[in-house]
Design a protein around this nucleic acid. Sequence first.
DNA 1: TTGCGAACCAACAATCGTTGCGAATACGGT
DNA 2: ACCGTATTCGCAACGATTGTTGGTTCGCAA
Lengths: 147, 147
Amino acid sequence: MRTPQELSTAFRAIGLKVTPQRQVLFSLLHQNDAHPSAEAIHLAASAVMPGISLRTVYQTLNDLVSMGELQQLQLTPGSARFDPNTTDHHHLVCDGCGEIRDVYVSGLADVDVCGLDGFRVAATDVVFRGSCPTCSSATGDPSAPHA
Amino acid sequence: MRTPQELSTAFRAIGLKVTPQRQVLFSLLHQNDAHPSAEAIHLAASAVMPGISLRTVYQTLNDLVSMGELQQLQLTPGSARFDPNTTDHHHLVCDGCGEIRDVYVSGLADVDVCGLDGFRVAATDVVFRGSCPTCSSATGDPSAPHA
DNA sequence: TTGCGAACCAACAATCGTTGCGAATACGGT
DNA sequence: ACCGTATTCGCAACGATTGTTGGTTCGCAA
Ligand SMILES: [Mn+2]
Ligand SMILES: [Mn+2]
Ligand SMILES: [Zn+2]
Ligand SMILES: [Zn+2]
């Protein structure tokens, strides 16, 4: 996702107005690597601008997604997550706490894929599921310090 | 997923009963490679057993998932898809029609993953998104025959 | 500065996918 | 056949997201 300033310009360029609400959302999303849900963004926005409506948050998130500034992820059942990181990256999902982290994968082009007869691949998403360090140490860690 | 017969035995072994509804679901799911939604399964089951409730379908699907006989996939927003194929495989998702197909990937162990500091990976899911042959030929196919 | 139209909000209602609940029913070990 | 318990099913409720409408605010181009 581009900077709030650049997004303001981009919004105006396509006839969308740059409102205070949208500016708050721009800055909350900029370089946000937490992969927040709409609800989480609304919560954070409410701290800065009390009264901002959840409806407006969804509206703006959808705008950003269709502009290609934001990626919408559906890695688990439940609410969608939003990702301003539009570089080529993939994700770690913690089954324990639901945290999502960025991960960078190289050598993907070398894997051998069997079964795509005629299917045209536009994007490849790799999702690693498991436990984050916090959740790992909390339970069932065979490498935990003694008893 | 095992055969309906084996599932019946497995259900009884853990104190679950083998009802006609469940038997219908067992046979509809066995070797089903369509990655159906709960709704789709309910529809198919209704043809065989009119009156079977959607609630029962969800109930049994959940049982099968927690027994490890069925995989639950959430590859897009919307309804979950269920997959009796428990072999090591991955998926193609058609953005056009929503079809999901199996695909087999080898050489995944050789990719270089950067950024998993302390994260414990239990499973890796690869999702290829694009267009199936049908949807490709329908629109925007640069290799389509003439006009 | 003014004016048009876009965006906002509040307050709902509605949709979709899924689960909770409770009364009636049926499986299956004895 | 009997009985305890699991299962079924219909309906209500849920969480996430979107539609609507009417009144107000406000960006921004002229
Ligand atoms: Mn990311
Ligand atoms: Mn599959
Ligand atoms: Zn965790
Ligand atoms: Zn298709």
